[in-house]
Simulated assay, not measured.
Amino acid sequence: MAETLIDVITSGSADRRDRSLESVCEKASLAELLNACAQLDRFRRTSDNLYERVRALFFLYALHRFILPARPGFPAQGLIPFDGYIRLLDRRLEEALDVFLREQERAGPSDSLSSALAAAYHKLGFQTLAHQVRRSVRSVLGNQWMFRAGHPGDQPLRIRPELLARATPASPFPVLRERTPVRMDLSHSGWSDIFFLGMDFPEGARVLNISIDLGVHGRDAAPQPPVEACVRVIDEPVLRLASVDLGCRADITELSEVFDFARDYLGLLKAAVIAAGVVPPGMEGSEARLHDLLVQVIGPGLGLEVVSRVGGIPKGSRLAVSTTLLACLISALMRATGQARSLSGPLEEDERRLVAARAILGEWLGGSGG
Rank of each mutant, 00 (worst) to 15 (best):
A96H: 06
V99Q: 06
P81M: 04
F126L: 12
I86K: 10
R134P: 00
A130M: 08
L89M: 15
G108F: 01
W145E: 12
R135N: 12
P152W: 15
G84C: 07
G108N: 03
H122N: 13
M146G: 03
A70Y: 06
A149C: 15
A70L: 11
A116M: 11
R138H: 12
Y85D: 05
F74H: 04
L88W: 08
F82R: 04
R65C: 05
A120S: 15
P81W: 02
H64K: 02
R106T: 10
P69H: 05
R148F: 10
F100S: 11
T128V: 13
A120D: 04
L124P: 04
S110N: 04
L117I: 09
P81G: 06
G142Y: 07
A120I: 02
S114Q: 08
V140Q: 14
P75D: 12
R134W: 03
P69Y: 01
E95L: 05
R65F: 03
A96W: 05
Q144W: 03
E103N: 10
V140R: 13
L68N: 10
E105P: 00
D111Y: 00
L68Q: 07
A149W: 06
Q144C: 01
P81D: 05
A76C: 06
R148K: 12
I86D: 07
A130L: 05
G84I: 07
R138S: 13
S112K: 06
L89I: 11
I86V: 15
M146I: 01
P81F: 02
A96P: 04
I80G: 00
A130K: 11
L101C: 09
T128Q: 07
F126I: 02
S114C: 15
L68H: 08
R148D: 14
R71T: 06
V99S: 01
S115I: 00
G108D: 05
A76H: 02
F82T: 05
L97M: 14
I86M: 11
V99N: 02
L88R: 06
Q144K: 10
P72F: 11
L88Q: 13
E105K: 10
Y121I: 08
G84M: 04
A130W: 02
E103I: 00
W145V: 10
E94Y: 08
L117R: 11
Q104Y: 00
L124C: 04
A130T: 14
A76G: 14
L101A: 12
D111E: 14
A116R: 07
L88N: 11
L129F: 03
L88Y: 14
D90H: 13
D83L: 10
M146Q: 15
H131V: 03
G78M: 11
H131I: 02
L88I: 02
Q104S: 11
F74R: 05
R138C: 10
E103A: 15
R134T: 12
T128F: 05
H64D: 07
D83R: 13
R87P: 01
A76W: 04
L97E: 14
G78T: 05
L113E: 06
R138I: 01
H122K: 12
L97H: 14
Q132F: 08
P69E: 08
A120P: 05
Q127Y: 05
A149S: 15
R92Y: 01
I80W: 00
A116T: 08
A120M: 02
S114M: 06
W145T: 09
A96C: 13
F82S: 01
D90I: 00
Q77I: 10
R135L: 12
R148T: 13
L141P: 01
F82K: 08
I67E: 09
S112G: 00
Q77F: 07
L124G: 06
